[in-house]
Design a protein around this nucleic acid. Structure first.
Lengths: 217, 217
DNA sequence: CGCTCGTTTGATAGCAATCAACCAACGTGG
DNA sequence: CCACGTTGGTTGATTGCTATCAAACGAGCG
């Protein structure tokens, strides 16, 4: 739709239409490196900063009183996270491995025009991702959960059908509402079916992405 | 924090701070009544409108190829829904019972100043709700799911610890990733424990909300 | 070589799904 | 007014998927 883009550039574009230029939220601030499993923030902390992943990866998680852990999502290079409505963190965030983050002060947002709309797009993208996650957790079998997880990751990381898992089996299990044993067995099944290849336990290859996608929908 | 509110009123308030005035998104458009189970929109439809629930209730749902159904969320009076990033609906929406909606054109948004920020708040609230849902589906038992569902509803509907369920057992089951039988048995258990009272099968009373909440966290 | 840690594999248990009645509320029509 | 069918909900018996418990495996490393 190049015609539409041209038109949009000439007059004020209504909200909720596809952006004609960069979607990028401009974040300004220092960069910091976090070590493996290092906390970026904890539940209950004040919401002072917003983050962009430069390299590495982050798990966003919540805990129940008895220690059960749910990973709400993974943040990968390019992703923005840490936006919240309230004054206190509702969950924690930790580095998966060696991870570099750009850290912007919350108060520094909102200066530029159009920034609110970019914030809105970031949140809406996160919402759609979370709703996909709900569908997976509510109605898919263990194997299907693992399959859709791999496809999701491939879409975000996979240059050409192969990529490196930045997280452990435990992280995957706690993301998918399973146990590490079930994740391992599901990967085994998928591998037996020729839908997945594990070069090492972190190095994934998806030889037949279409067949894998057929499993999930 | 009245002092902060005063300060905020004097100078441009940074984004991501608590709003000092009404959070309300101004939506303009006609009102329409939908009958029970009537479709408001379907997956794949164009995204032309945004909705506010005036009365009644709405289920937002997604289907898998084999018919498995996941209810992503319920929209109750006052809620805004139908905002999407893309051009096509990613799921469908249906009226739970007789339901009145205010329908605004998508293109009519974005006119007023500050509207983008209100949109952002609406989306972020939906995101937080969805993340709570992920925690529930990923890591809670059947009984805990039902308990947190009832608490959530009570917070949105419950004038004083009692309210009317606007949805059927099947809707609840498909929201919580369970079956109707399991929902029924869980309600039975909660009732046996004195944490819930069902005056009729739709009329709920929560005599000990604190004890119920203790179950869930 | 012998740790440790993360992962895989195996045996068993348990929670929720499935299959199947049963029940209550409601509406219709005889 | 009551027989009847329909719909939504509850209760019971059994199955099955995933969790749990347990052990083996393999890679990385001092």
């Amino acid at each position: 739709m190049p015609a539409q883009s041209l038109a949009a550039a000439r007059r004020p574009r209504p909200l909720l239409e596809a952006p004609e230029v960069s979607d990028d939220l401009r974040l300004i601030g220092p960069t910091r490196v976090f070590g493996r499993d290092e906390a970026i923030f904890d539940e209950g902390d004040g919401v002072d900063s917003v983050y962009r992943v430069v390299s590495g990866g982050v798990r966003a998680l919540r805990l129940l009183a008895d220690g059960r852990r749910q990973i709400i999502g993974f943040h990968l290079p390019g992703d923005i996270f840490g936006l919240e409505l309230g004054e206190r963190r509702r969950g924690s965030a930790e580095a998966l491995g060696e991870t570099t983050l750009l850290i912007a002060r919350r108060a520094s947002l909102g200066a530029e025009p159009g920034q609110a709309e970019r914030l809105w797009r970031v949140s809406l993208a996160a919402l759609e991702r979370s709703q996909d996650h709900v569908l997976t957790l509510g109605r898919r079998s263990a194997c299907e959960r693992v399959a859709s997880f791999l496809l999701d990751l491939a879409g975000r990381l996979g240059a050409g059908g192969h990529f490196e898992l930045p997280m452990s089996r435990l992280d995957i299990a706690d993301h998918l509402g399973l146990t590490i044993e079930t994740v391992s067995r599901s990967l085994g099944q998928l591998q037996a079916g020729g839908l997945v290849r594990l070069d090492s336990c972190r190095r994934v290859r998806l030889p037949r992405p279409a067949a894998l996608a057929a499993l999930c929908q």
